[in-house]
Each structure stands twice: as C-alpha cells, then as structure tokens.
Design a protein around this nucleic acid. Structure first.
Lengths: 316, 316
DNA sequence: ATGAAAGCGCTAACAA
DNA sequence: TTGTTAGCGCTTTCAT
C-alpha cells in the first residue's frame, strides 16, 4: 500500500502539501501541485478513506436496518433508498436484523462508532427507548410513524389505508371479508389491520385472518383454509399482490369466479397483480424509501406522510 | 465520544489492558478485567470500528457492484448475497454503477482503501484489464464467467441455457421465434442470446428481437411490435417473467391463444410467471449470489457453475 | 506557500 | 500479568 508519506517523499514535498493537493486547497504553488499530482498518477495512488473518515468523523455511508431481505415491502423501500443514494454519491449498507434486538443494537452502535452517518429503520425490533439514545451520534430515520421528536419519519398512514380498503369492500356489498397478514400479532401492521377490520365490520371473529403469508403459495394455502370454513369469505384483503395472486390461483382452481364469487384486493401494486388484474392498495413504498433517504442526509427530523391510493381492477 | 483512553484512565489501567479486555485476551487478572468491564458498561462505551479496521486492514464488509437497483436479475443475486451475509455476520454495501466506468473504478478503489474486504461484481462496465489490478488489494468475485485466474466466479452457463431454450421451442415445432432482451448489443447476455439463436435457427433476421425490455408494459409493447410485423412469431422467449407476463397480456388482449397461437417462455421463475402459468428458464440467480458470497469471504478464486433448469408450464 | 508535528482511536510489539 | 510506545494513513493547527 503506497501512502501519503510515499507520495510526499517521492514528490519531494511534505505530507501536508500532498494532503492539500488531495483536498484541493489553495496556497499550493502550481509547480508543487503538478509534481505531486504526477506522482499520484504514476503510482496510481488513492487515499485511504478509512483514515480520512477516522479523522473527519463522517463517512457518506448510510445504513438501512431491515428485518428480512426477502420481503417485498422492505425491498421496495430499499430500492427507493438506493435510487436516491446513487444520485447523491452515498453508499448504502444493508443491515438485516431478523428482528434480533441485539443485532439491531449492534447496528445502531455503528452510528456511535462513526462508521455510518445515519441510519434508516424500515422496521425495528427494539422499543424506541432503546433506540433514542443513539440519536446523539447521528440521525435516525424511521419508515414507521413515531411521535418522538428526535426521529425523522417517512411513513404511510397504514391504519387509514386499511380502513379505506375494508370500507371499499364493504361498500361493494361484502359483509364476509377475510384478510391475510405477514407476521402475527407481534407486528404493528397486523395489529392495525385487525383494528381497522373491527372499526369497519364491528367485530373480528376467529378465523378471519391468516398470518405468515409471504408468497404465492402461502396465498393459495390461505385461501384454501378460508374456504374450508363454515363462514366462507366473499372477499379477501391480501397483505401483498403475490399473496393475492395465490388466492386468485386458488379461486381459479376451484372454479370460483373473481370477483363474483370472491373479490380480491392486494397491496403494493406488484407485477403479478397487474398481470392478473388484481385490485391493490399502492402504498408507494419506493417513495417512502426515497424520502427517508432525503431526511437522512439532511439530518432532518421532519415527519413526511406519503399518500397511498387504491387501484381498482377487475378483481373487485 | 468516550474512547479507550478515557476507559483506561477511569479504570486506573493502561489502554492495552482495556484493549485486552475488549478483545478477550488472556493474561488479564480477573479484578482488572472486571474493573475495566464495569467502566465500559457504566459509560456505555463501544470501540470505534473505524480505528480498528484502519489497523487491522480488514472490515468484514463486502461490496456488491451492480449496474441498477431495479433489475430483477441483479436483485435476485443481491438477495442471495444478503442471505448468506446475515449468517456470517458480514455487512453488505450496495454499489450501483449504472454502468458508469469511472464510478465502478471508484468502488474498486474502496478495496484498495481498505474499506472493503472483497467485492462481488454482478455486472461490470470496465474491461477486465482495468479491474484486474485491484485484485492485489482484496478478492474480486464475478457473477459472470471469466478465464482470468485472479477472479473467482459464481456463474451460470447462459449460452447453454439460451441454446436449450431455443432448442426446446424448436422441438415443439416453432420455426418463427422472436425474443426480447434487456440492454442492447452492448450487453454480453444479449450477444449470447443472438449467438444462440443463430446456432439453433440458422440466421437472425432483423426484427427478430427487441431490446430495452424490463417490465410488464415493455413486454406488452414488444409483443405488439412483433405482431405488427409480416413475419409474426409463433413463440417468444422473453428475458424475464415480467416481460413474459406483458407478452401474455398482449396475447389475451388480442385474442391469441397461448400456447396454440403464441408460445411464451420467460426467465427466472418469478411470481408473475407462476401465477400466469408461464414456462420459464430458472437460472437460480439467488444461488449464484449465495455462492459468490462464499467465494468472497474465503477469498477463493474457484469457478463455480450454477446449473439452470427449464420449468415447463402451460404456456409452451 | 510550505513543513513539522500533534493527534484521530485503536492494536501490537516490546519491556518490565 | 501489566504498561509503554510506536505506529495505521490521514488532517490540521502552528510556525516559518
């Protein structure tokens, strides 16, 4: 590894002069500047960013905490973040937690360790109490809404969107509505979906929803289970278009007409939903990610609400 | 920022003792170890990873160079890499190039700067000549095959798979086959597809393929253009299942029966293909990513070929 | 305009 | 077993 000392020695100047050339300082004579530059080019030298970061205490790297790397929703936010980061010359480091609290805390420590300028949390395992102290060391942005003043948010009003989705189905005349979720009751969005269901339909009877739905096959199996019940649903609100696609496949395979026998509505406006003509609630998660990135780099603590919209297609 | 000196001072020991406690060295008396640990806990101290990396010259971070962050294929490889990285306690930093040669070189310099242990290249802009010198500073793994001894590869035999796909269509009786690609002739995989086409069907007439196909809508438009030609295809090989899905939609919308009037085969076994019953060539790109990660961390220069397989569904 | 020297926070010989 | 000290590669005063 050739370093700044080598360059200085060969160019016949001091390390500080080399540093000045490197950082485009003034007060360097043209000749010395050229001499140094020549050596830099000849030796194909590049400064050690690590050493620079160590001193400067800034990295131009932002971390993204996300639970899994195989979840459509988190992926979309990540895409949005990457999108913006490319333009702004920031690197993005992906930090998957699997909802492991300890691991999450370790990642947050990277902020303290000056390895990261800021962290975007798409979904968290720890309580905010645990996370808040780290705001001392860098900005923390959440993709879920929180009241805490120290946390910037780029979020969607999930509860309102769930209400809206259920309301839409109700207005179409459905009284027997089922739904699927990703994680179980430990998940905020599952809780909110249940809450919204109660608000719209009055009560949430057991068997109304099925959790652990992530892919097409999960959707298929969920539909199968719903239709094995006494109280068969006339509409299903899926937690994603892939799952909705699986439900659609089940409908097809059992001769159910969509939407006459079964209405289906998904989420996130994915290709599979477009292809199958499935209605969907588009939460614009990519946009959520993009805005989160903006908040992160400008160290803002604003709360930005990203609007959702329902896309009506032939499945409802 | 409280640092190792503070801890040492307060605990009444030397920095090296603190360092030893931090790194679980032996030759530290229980009492000193406890004393140090107590101060560490009290002050909620965490070592500066940056400083550690600077000395050790290792980071436990690997970089992934990919052209875009919105391409199904690259995403899948990235998923595979992330998958493994979680288990191995490595962080992954995403480095999108947009095929910008300069940017790519900057990323490779991160290897030199000891910011990264190794780099996985999913697709590159620069020639290997430009890239090879960086192997001095860390391992570089390619997800495309190359002969260069210094580069480890986790790859698929794309050419063989293209041949196989075209051959499959030919054996089904198709003589008028069209195909779509992502990038144009500057792309290796486009070149290989063309080559394979020639090998199987003898010649590649103009209008046989359409490039810049990335999503459902692109597929739809491509199909539309194919069917505006005099020589309409009886089968289309799409460069992805999303594009294949768009082609399927076009077929539906113009009353073409699949596969009787138009056979469709896609790539990568995506949900949309499963939902629509589209045949596909599964290149197991996630697996490619997983293996690339393995090569990266063990600094291997092996060449691992990942087998593909054709999944026959009702669209052919 | 330029250089010497003091750090940044840590590890790792080397002594003791 | 413990402490002292010399770096890692760079930036940044402070002199000159």
């Amino acid at each position: 590894m050739t370093n700044i000392n080598d360059i200085a020695k060969i160019a016949g100047v001091s390390v500080s002069t080399v540093s000045r050339v490197l950082n485009n300082y003034k007060y360097v004579s043209e000749e010395k500047r050229n001499a140094v530059q020549k050596v830099i080019n000849d030796l194909n030298y590049t400064p050690n960013k690590n050493a620079i970061d160590l001193i400067r205490g800034e990295t131009n790297i932002i971390g993204v905490i996300l639970p899994y790397n195989n979840n459509q929703a988190f992926d979309q936010m990540l895409q949005g973040i990457l999108h913006r980061s490319v333009k702004m010359d920031f690197s993005v480091i992906v930090l998957p937690t699997k909802y492991d609290k300890k691991k999450e805390l370790e990642y947050l420590a990277m902020l303290k360790n000056k390895l990261l300028d800021s962290i975007i949390i798409t979904s968290k395992a720890n309580a905010w109490d645990e996370i808040l102290p780290f705001t001392t060391y860098g900005s923390i942005i959440s993709c879920e809404y929180t009241d805490f003043k120290k946390i910037g948010c780029s979020y969607i009003d999930r509860y309102a969107s769930y209400i809206d989705a259920f309301q839409t189905l109700k207005e179409l005349g459905h009284s027997s509505v089922a739904f699927t979720t990703a994680r179980g009751e430990e998940s905020l969005s599952t809780q909110q979906t249940c809450q919204a269901y109660k608000e719209v339909f009055g009560e949430l009877r057991p068997g109304t929803y099925i959790s652990q739905c992530y892919c097409l096959e999960d959707g298929f199996q969920a539909a199968k289970r719903f239709f094995a019940l006494n109280n068969k649903p006339s509409a299903i609100y899926a937690n994603g278009d892939e799952v909705a696609g699986g439900i659609y496949q089940y409908a097809q395979s059992s001769g159910l007409k969509v939407p006459e026998d079964l209405a289906i509505i998904g989420q996130e406006n994915q290709p599979v939903g477009v292809a199958l003509g499935l209605a969907t609630v588009d939460h614009h998660l990519m946009h959520v990610g993009e805005q989160a990135f903006e908040l992160a780099i400008r160290k803002s603590r604003d709360k930005i609400k990203i609007p959702y919209n329902i896309i009506r297609r032939s499945s409802i």
